[in-house]
Structure formats: C-alpha cells, structure tokens
Design a protein around this nucleic acid. Sequence first.
DNA 1: GTCACGTTTCACACGCGGTTAACACAACAC
DNA 2: GTGTTGTGTTAACCGCGTGTGAAACGTGAC
Lengths: 233, 233
Amino acid sequence: MIDVVLCVPSCDGPIRKAFEVTGVTPAVATTGRLNEVVALEPADGFAGAVINAAGFPFTEAMNLCRQLRHRDRPVSPIILLLDHYQLDDLTFREDLFDDFVVGPFDVSEVATRLRHRLRRAGNETVAARVEHGGLAMNLETYQATIAGRVMDLTYMEYELLRFLATNPYRVFTRETLLSRVWGYEYYGGARTVDVHVRRLRAKLGEEYAHLIQTVRSVGYRFGAPTEGEPDED
Amino acid sequence: MIDVVLCVPSCDGPIRKAFEVTGVTPAVATTGRLNEVVALEPADGFAGAVINAAGFPFTEAMNLCRQLRHRDRPVSPIILLLDHYQLDDLTFREDLFDDFVVGPFDVSEVATRLRHRLRRAGNETVAARVEHGGLAMNLETYQATIAGRVMDLTYMEYELLRFLATNPYRVFTRETLLSRVWGYEYYGGARTVDVHVRRLRAKLGEEYAHLIQTVRSVGYRFGAPTEGEPDED
DNA sequence: GTCACGTTTCACACGCGGTTAACACAACAC
DNA sequence: GTGTTGTGTTAACCGCGTGTGAAACGTGAC
C-alpha cells in the first residue's frame, strides 16, 4: 500500500525532493479545483495534502482547504507552503490547515514536517523500496518478497541481492561485488560470491532463479531477462 | 485569564517579541529541570511550552519533552526551536513535540506557530493507545496488556516496547534504539539493548516472545511475523 | 572425441553475533 | 541501618551464518 499525498498546484524542486525522501507519492492537481482533486483520489483516499499557496491565489488556496476539510471524506493533514508576507493572512484560519512552511523551501524542513504530520495522523510513512521483476525489497524492514512470498534471507544474502537489484541489468565482476557488497579488497576468495549467488537462487525458487544471470568469464547480472533493456557493457 | 507558556532555557530577542505579539506570558526555566518547571507552573497549568533545543543539549531537551508529556498533567502544545542540522534528530521522536521552528528565528513565524498551536490545542489528540498483534499499550496509564493479560513492565521496558510497537516492522539498530529510547549518544553498551529485549520477551511470554524479532547483524524489529506487513500489493 | 577453463555444488570448520545468566550498583522504601 | 527493585555490565555459551577448498559439472575450442 502506497501513501498518496495531494500536491497543488505543482510538485517540483525541493518539494519533489521532500516527497522522495519521505517515501510518499505525490498526486499533482494543477488547477486545484475540487473535481480535479476527486479525479486524482486513490481508492483509499489521500494520506494528506500539500498546497503551495505561494504559487497560487491565496483565497483559492484557502477555499480548497475548506473544501478538503468539509468533504464527506476529509483530507488530513493539510500543509501549506507560503511566502513570508502571507503569514498574517493565516490568522483566524488556524483550523483550515495543520502545518505550514515558509519559503524559500528547504528540503529537510519540508520532509520533516511532512513526516511529522503523517505520523501524527496515524499514517505509516512508506519505506524506501526496491522492486524488480516480482522481487520487492523493503529497505527499512529488511524484508524481501518474491512473487508475494516472503524470502528468509541472511544478512549477506540480503545485502548482495539489494546491491544487484538496485543496479539491474548491469554486469558486475566478482571483484566488484566483493568490494562493493563485502567492502574489502579481493582477498582471493572469489568463490564466495558464487556460493552466495547460488544460495540466493535457491531461495528465489526455480521460477525466479534466473533473475540472477551468469555472464560467463565476466560475472553476474540481475534482471528479468524477458524484459529488454538498453544496456551497454 | 492569562496564558502562561513555559520557555526553556531563555526568552530573548525574536522569541520574546513573538510572545509579546501573541499576547502570552512566558515563564522562563533556565535549567530545564523538571522541579524548576513545576515551581513555575501556575495554578491552572501551562498553556504550552517553547523549548529552545538550539541553545541546549539536545538529549536533555528531548528528555524534558518526554517528562512534560508523561506527567499527570501533560503540557501541550510543545514547540521546539532548532538549528537546521538538528532536523534529522527528530526522526522517530514525532510524538514528543507538536511543532518546531528552524533558526534563524523569525518573529512572525514563531508567533504564527505559537498562535496556531495554542488555538488548535485540544482539537489535537496524540494517539493515546497502541495496539498490535495482541499487545495493547495505554500511553496515559502506562499499562500494557498482552492477550488481555496485564504485563508488569518497568520504566525502560515500557519505553522500549512502546518505541518498537509504535514503529512496527521497521528494523532498528542497537545504536538507534539507544539514542531514541535511552537518549544516549555513546555507543559503549550495545548489550544493554539485548538484555532489555530478553526481559521483554520473557514478560511477553513464550507465545508472544516472537513479537520482537532479531534481525541478525542488523538489530531488532517488532511485529507479528505471520501476518504479512502492509507493503505488499 | 579430448582438453582446458569456468561455474556450480557440496561438505565442513571457524568465528561472529545473539542469548543467557549472574553480578554490580544505584535508587528508594521501610 | 537492611531489603527490594530497576538497570547496566560482564562473561560464558552456543547456534548458525559465512567463507573456503575440492570435487562435480557444463561449455566451448580444437
């Protein structure tokens, strides 16, 4: 399940970065009309809203807030992005929003406020994930699933798979894998990589074992082989 | 009736101005000790607290927040004043404060946040209850039950379990747990975490001991292992 | 076919890392 | 004072993850 946060009227620069850092997906409503918002809404509703009142007529932004609040399915939390001169306009409108940020917008601050409000609203912020060809890895829970089935991976197996999955289709030599995943310089045990690849393939199961491919005389590559990829090596 | 807001450890410059603009009276606690705070408290309690974590040891500020929250008469809202570099330290501490301001402090912004939180106070309820996989924790009465059976937890046990249970499925390193639950900054005794986990598991009982899982070479995770975590689609 | 070279697979031993118990010490009650 | 309870430290124990060597297997060259 992915948290979708409404973003009006645009989502670029530091705002987009903040969304990425927080791990939530923005749904951008450029006009800020309610019907546009409704059209964007996922089945389980928005996890919140970020409204940039700096790049938007202020009264319209406030109207949108009111509409989002008074709907049959209220959107919460609502975070406003403001210019400094707009601060006074917030007086007596405190109930229309839950937090605000004053420009120029700093990525860390926006992300922190987003996370703060989401967690206080009871939402679990979505963790950073890696997904590819039926494999899903949650980097915060240290869990991996293949085709929905939970894989019971050891530490090194997880680290190796994570490295490969975050760099799909690229071929890595055993030496590269040793230095990047294990962290030390090649001591002479290149077989170590082979063995871990073998164990990973076993745990991936017969159907998905080929997600890790052997490139003879070179090394290993991760990726669904059916899907073409404009890779160079 | 005059609203008195606790102010730690000082109240000068833009902060004092913000208080003046908002029309609330500051009660300055220079040390930030709880007994000093209690001595300053008016008969009808504080209307809120502003804690300058920029001019104050951060962990002490966090401890004060926790104490103010867990008192028989909790102080709310709590607003933190921070340096930009302290933003990351707020992660997983979202329940300890209600708002924050990043320095250099602007009078209008501080005043607006103060006003905002004071007006919203009462409308906002921090989730006073955590439930997960047979475990229920009442954050107000400091009681925990597992499968309906009351658990007799000590302070540290309770704090650790609360932290884990409010962040289910996420893996935490011992260092993270030490800094977030204990508040330490030193990494000398990581075994401390192990021992407390062991004691918690013992009190959870054999059937529920596995609610806290060991992630080898990484740390610990809370959550019912049989139920899939809420990330699969 | 044979041979050479690279990869897969297996079995096994070492040691890291977690568990566990016992102890030390401080805080507090009586 | 003594006893109790909570908390952190130390060290012994041990399971299992991990790396290694060697044998089995596959592949391409000739």
